[in-house]
Amino acid sequence: MSDYNFAYLDEQTKRMIRRAILKGLAIPGYQVPFASREMPMPYGWGTGGVQVSAAVLTPDDTFKVIDQGADDTTNAVSIRRFFQKTAGVAVTEATSEASVIQTRHRIPEQDLRADQILVYQVPIPEPLRFLEPSEVETRKMHALEEYGLMHVKLYEDISQHGDIATAYAYPVKVEGRYVMDPSPIPKFDNPKLEMAGIQLFGAGREQRIYAIPPYTQVVSLDFDDYPFQPTKADHACDLCGAEDSYLDELIVDDAGGRMFMCSDTDYCATRRKQGHVGAQGVPYKEDAA
């Protein structure tokens, strides 16, 4: 532990990252370049998010990491351990107890409070990249608010699939100004981007940080005749019975049996503890968790 500065990064680097975060909060949805550092983990593991977390964590924080909604994947466990070791912070799996939550691919089901920070790991921060490979040109498009191309992407979706097939990383417009990639969260989560908590996005390889301050307007792009729809599987959770949560589908046997369960494992466990039981669920027992 004494081999590292608090949260691994040196103070000067953290200050540089904090400046980028503050700038991002001042210009919601705008991608702020920052000098991304090498972290002792591969890029795919969310080094952008890790650097942002390192810059915002204080010794009093309680840290939670989710990957696709789950606290127990290799990625989530490693990042949680990393900050336990380098920052000595308390960790938790309970959304309500965490003050800083680092996430990949989901927003927790439970509404976040004003005293909570959600840190996203972002693989590709540029929403226009798909159709315009030139970085110079995409920057100009953002600067001049030339966002017609974003709708070309949605047009292509509808013309090929009969509907807007984009299910993840669904583009949004922040506070009526910048078009932003919300990272690969399911579009079901998009409405939750308007929240009380602070949202910070870090892309390590692409060296960008952006942010959504509390209670900022976030609108999902769409067409008048193909309005945005935050879809999910048309089921209830088979474990806890929740009808309002994002579900993962699981094949449970060779006979094609399947099961739907909350992707947010903390949400599901909390509900089961409260006594909710789904169609294939068994009542919650402490040791079965």
């Binding site: 017609g148 008048d224 005749d225």
Partner: peptide, 14 residues
């Protein structure tokens, strides 16, 4: 063909 229309804020797919 549609890009220029969308660039000037056409928002009706049909």
């Amino acid at each position: 063909v549609g890009e220029r229309l969308m660039a000037v804020n056409a928002r009706h797919y049909g």
